[in-house]
């Protein structure tokens, strides 16, 4: 009996320890910062595109007028400041303000404040433009939501550049980029949100007979309105269509399991790039495909993100890193090892 109680107690202790490790291990902000640049860029592009057709979508004689938009949200808690906007001058002012905010988010200017504004503005557009929304907007607002939570502007941002320049001018040491719990929480939330998206995407497909009989991909590729590059020649390889349909079905449903273990994560993420890249290239949804790939970056450890980005940018280390005293550098290496260990779901305790 005592052994049973002890084992249950140990189990609860292990669960608490795992929970603590999962949520409260400080993480470097590099992955979040890269998602800010790419996701912020997508928010900027998405809203810049409205500029060309602003009156048709937000003006007094828009496709869905503001009164109709408001009435379609009746009895819900949805909100949008656009429901109060009637004057074209105010419409343009608010739209330009939103575009500036999304640009600031991408560049990392006053990131903490503009991240909140960007999410509020993106949601306001979504509620106002009911009927014209699709997966791109769902993904944009999902990314914007979690950029508010963590220090998305801590690196690769104007904020960081200004802080370093200010310190250099004052003759002080440039501030180090610190790992933080908030960066970890933001990334964890994005990871779990993405798992929920794929789980229900997969469950939805599990209910369709075309995904099981292997013809679903044909009906997706043969859709004239979606098609951007002709892929109907695949009909001559029906086994390939059936294989790709089955792989998509199982990958999407089991993504939430495959993406966590270190061994299967590259497969889950590689498939995400192929599936979303295919949607972008062949089905005309370049923006949606890219936005989903950007969200998947949440599963790249920050150290790897940093290393890849800095290698791409053609530098292995920053000047202020070189200036770090040897002991501090040693401590940083230990921090990185600890952070990498914590990132793994089955990290040795």
């Amino acid at each position: 009996m005592n052994a049973a109680v002890a084992s249950i107690r140990d189990w609860f202790r292990d669960v608490l320890r795992a929970w603590n490790r999962f949520w409260f291990t400080p993480a470097q902000p590099h992955t979040l910062a890269l998602i800010r640049i790419l996701g912020g860029g997508m928010l900027l592009y998405t809203h810049l595109a409205w500029t060309l057709h602003l009156s048709n979508f937000l003006g007094p004689n828009s496709w869905v007028t503001r009164e109709v938009s408001q009435s379609l949200h009746q009895d819900t808690w949805a909100w949008s400041y656009w429901w109060l906007v009637d004057s074209p001058a105010l419409m343009w002012t608010l739209h330009i303000a939103a575009v500036v905010v999304f640009a600031m988010l991408m560049l990392g200017v006053y990131t903490r404040v503009v991240a909140v504004l960007a999410w509020l503005m993106a949601v306001a557009y979504c509620h106002r433009l009911i009927g014209a929304m699709f997966g791109l907007d769902t993904t944009n607002t999902m990314i914007a939501l979690y950029l508010m939570v963590g220090p998305a502007g801590a690196v690769w941002s104007v904020d960081h550049w200004r802080a370093r320049r200010g310190a250099e001018r004052a003759g002080r040491k440039a501030p180090d980029v610190q790992p933080s719990v908030s960066a970890n929480v933001a990334i964890r939330l994005l990871q779990l949100h993405l798992c929920i998206v794929y789980l229900f995407g997969g469950i939805g497909k599990m209910r369709g007979e075309l995904w099981w009989d292997g013809s679903a991909l044909w009906y997706a590729l043969a859709n004239y309105e979606y098609q951007s590059l002709p892929m109907t020649w695949l009909i001559h390889a029906p086994w390939l269509i059936a294989l790709l349909s089955a792989v998509t079905l199982f990958w999407e449903t089991f993504y939430c399991f495959l993406v966590w273990p270190r061994l299967t994560r590259p497969i889950a993420l590689g498939m995400a790039v192929l599936v979303h890249g295919g949607i972008a290239a062949f089905m005309g949804m370049i923006t949606f495909g890219l936005a989903m790939i950007f969200a998947n970056l949440a599963f790249i450890p920050p150290e790897m993100t940093r290393s890849c980005v800095e290698r791409l940018a053609g530098r292995r280390s920053r000047p202020h890193d070189q200036a770090q005293p040897a002991r501090q550098k040693q401590a940083s290496k230990k921090q990185l090892r600890a952070s990498r260990a914590a990132w793994r779901p089955h990290a040795p305790r």
């Binding site: 949200h73 808690w77 939501l145 497909k205 369709g208 009906y219 997706a220």
Partner: peptide, 21 residues
């Protein structure tokens, strides 16, 4: 919270079947 934060989605992309346009 779901309504205010624009979280009311089913995520049934091309599901249950890729249908007509």
């Amino acid at each position: 919270y779901i309504n205010a934060a624009y979280l009311d989605h089913g995520y049934f992309y091309f599901a249950p079947n890729p249908g007509p346009s």
